[in-house]
Computed example of a mutant assay.
Amino acid sequence: MVRNYKRRTNQQSWSKDSMACAIRDVRNGTLKLKAASLKYQIPATTLYRRVKSGKNVTEASNKSLGRFKSTFTYDQEKELAEFILEMESRLFGLSFKELRSLAYQYAIKNKIPNSFNHNTKLAGRDWVYKFLERQKNISLRLPEKTSAARASAFNPTNVGNFFNLLGSLFDTFHFPASRIFNCDETGISSVPNKPTKIFSLKGKKQVGCLSSAERGSLVSVEVCFSPAGTSIVDISPGKA
């Protein structure tokens, strides 16, 4: 498949948003078909065919040129996207290859006609790229390794207790800006183990995945800053 195809005709030059508005106006009775065709600059025969298709507005307004058709419907791809985000939220995000395998299994289980590779039992790489174009809230990210103990400890009860204790300390001691520090640390391992990129919600600040206990030695770097501009930097060797 050509990934960067350049149009050579002006067919379906209308936008999906215009088509969706036109279909919605005709079905609701807001506009007659001819008036909607003129208003949104869409051929009347094309608009008539899509209004009478019986599909929902999203599916009816999709563009379809050539012999290559989308394997899954809008609702099916939405279900896949929700599953991807659900797995990532549970720290079991899908890798690029795992998504290809999932798409193939989904198509086979639901008896959906497809052109996927039946030898490797994987969806094509081009399908993944187009899927990401349609699902704007999903991107391929590099996760941070997160232990099961740390993941289970991060819950509303523990977080609420922490902030309640913090609030009571501030109310009691009234710490000045020079005594408040924001601290963060990182470890540089002597045996790095880079995880595979996974699909996650676009814009999410931190993406994690479960991992086994760390092994080997590392150098810990800890940096603290206060609102008054005071800084503390500590570098020390340790064991993972």
Rank of each mutant, 00 (worst) to 15 (best):
T30W: 15
K69G: 02
Q76E: 15
S64I: 11
R141S: 09
S15Y: 12
R3E: 08
Q135S: 06
Y129Q: 12
T157S: 12
R3Q: 05
E86H: 04
F175P: 10
D25Q: 07
R125W: 03
H118M: 13
R3P: 04
R3S: 06
F131D: 00
V233T: 12
S147L: 12
P192H: 01
E222T: 14
Y106S: 07
R67W: 13
N164L: 09
P237T: 07
S220A: 14
V159L: 09
I23T: 03
C183W: 07
F199M: 02
I84H: 00
V207C: 05
N119Y: 09
T71V: 12
L166A: 15
D17W: 12
N117Y: 07
R67L: 15
D75R: 14
L80N: 02
N155M: 05
S189I: 03
Y5D: 05
L99M: 14
K63W: 10
K16W: 04
L122C: 13
F131V: 01
N28R: 08
R150D: 13
L102E: 07
F72V: 06
K34A: 15
I23D: 01
Q76L: 05
L91Y: 13
G29F: 05
A22L: 02
N10S: 04
T71P: 00
R3Y: 06
A228W: 04
L65H: 09
M1F: 07
E88K: 12
